[in-house]
Simulated assay, not measured.
Amino acid sequence: MRLGADHVLVTVPATSANLGPGFDAMGLALGLHDEIEVRLVASDDVTVEVVGEGAGEVPDGADHLVVRALQHTLEAAGAPLTGVHLRCTNRIPHGRGLGSSAAAVVSGIVAARGLLADPHVLDARTMLGIATAFEGHPDNAAPALRGGATLAWSGPQGPRAVDLEVDPRVRATVLVPDVRLATSRARGVLPDQVPHADAAFTAGRAALLVEALARRPELLLDATEDRLHQDYRAEVMASTAELVRALRAAGLAATVSGAGPTVLVLAVAEQRTALDTVLSDLLGDLGADRVGGAGWRVADLAIDGTGATCRSVAQE
C-alpha cells in the first residue's frame, strides 16, 4: 500500500465510558479534544513534542503511544514505515477516566489512515479492532472513533459498535480532581463475582439508559444507577464516591467517568440551576477544596457528535 500524504492533523475527543451501568460497553464522546500533528520524515528518526497534558511525562520517542499505534496501523495496511515527527497538543487529562489512552491510540490509527493513498483499506471495523487490541476493550475507542454515544462489544466477528441516539437537550459536566488513578488499580478492586440480583439490576438499568439518553432524559437519574463497579471502587477514590453520592442525592445523574476518578454528570438545561447550586455548596467557588481533600475542576461540555477527524496539511 502506497502512502498518499506525509503531513496530517488529527483531532480526537475525550470519552467517558460506562455511564453507570454500561460497564465496559457504553461510552460517550465529549467536546474536549487533543490535536495531533504527524509529519513523515525521510529518515528513521522518531521525535515527539508534547504540549499540555502529559508534557515531560510521556515517552518522547518510538515508545509514545500515538507513534506505536501509527506504525502498527501502517504496517497492518502494508504501508512502508518511515521516520515520524509528532506534535501533540493535549487537553484531555491523563489518568482521570476521560479516555486519554484511547484518544492517543485512535489518533495514531486515524493518522495512519489519513496518510494512506487509499484510506478505504482501513474501514471502521478494522480501526476499531486495532484500537481494541491496544486498549483491551472497545468502550472508549468506539466513541473516540465514531463520536456521540456508542454501545460496543466483542464477539466472534471481533469488536463491533453501534451508535446510540442522544437527546440534543443532554449535556455533560465533568468534575476533574487534581489526583490521578491508574486504570489497573481501579480494576484491581473489582470482585470476580457479584450477586445475581446486582447483575440483574444493572442489566435493567443499562437497557433503560438507552431510552433515557435517546428520548427520556428525565429518566437519567434512575438509568445511571449501577451495582457492578462503582461501589467496589469507592475504596480507591473516596472523594469521587462522596461527590457522586451527594450529586445523586440532589437528583442529578452523576456517575464515575470510566475508571475514575473524574465524575460525569448528565443533565438537561432545566437542571442547570440545581447543578450549579449543588456544586457551589460542595466545591465552593472555582472548585475549592471541599470534598475529600481533593481540588476539582468543573467543565461543561457538549457531546461530540463527530469523533476523530483527520485532514491533510497539503490539501489546506
Rank of each mutant, 00 (worst) to 15 (best):
E235R: 14
V236F: 00
M237S: 11
A238R: 10
A238H: 04
S239G: 13
T240I: 01
T240N: 14
A241L: 08
A241C: 06
E242F: 03
L243D: 04
L243K: 01
V244F: 03
V244N: 03
R245I: 09
A246R: 09
A246Y: 01
A246M: 02
L247A: 06
L247H: 03
R248E: 07
A249R: 08
A249D: 10
A250V: 07
G251C: 04
L252V: 15
L252D: 08
A253Y: 03
A253K: 08
A254C: 06
V256D: 08
V256W: 00
G258V: 04
A259I: 00
A259E: 02
A259H: 05
G260K: 06
G260R: 06
G260E: 06
G260H: 02
T262A: 13
T262S: 13
L264H: 01
L264F: 06
L264R: 01
L264I: 11
L266N: 06
L266D: 06
V268Q: 09
A269L: 09
A269K: 12
Q271T: 13
Q271I: 14
A274E: 03
A274S: 10
L275I: 06
T277A: 15
T277P: 02
V278N: 00
V278G: 04
V278A: 12
S280G: 15
S280N: 12
D281C: 11
L283H: 02
G284E: 07
G287R: 13
A288N: 04
D289E: 14
D289S: 09
R290Y: 01
R290C: 10
V291F: 01
V291K: 01
G292M: 15
G293A: 09
A294K: 01
G295V: 04
W296I: 09
V298R: 10
V298I: 13
V298Y: 05
L301E: 12
A302L: 09
A302M: 09
A302T: 13
A302C: 12
I303F: 14
D304V: 14
G305N: 14
T306R: 11
T306N: 10
T306K: 10
T306H: 10
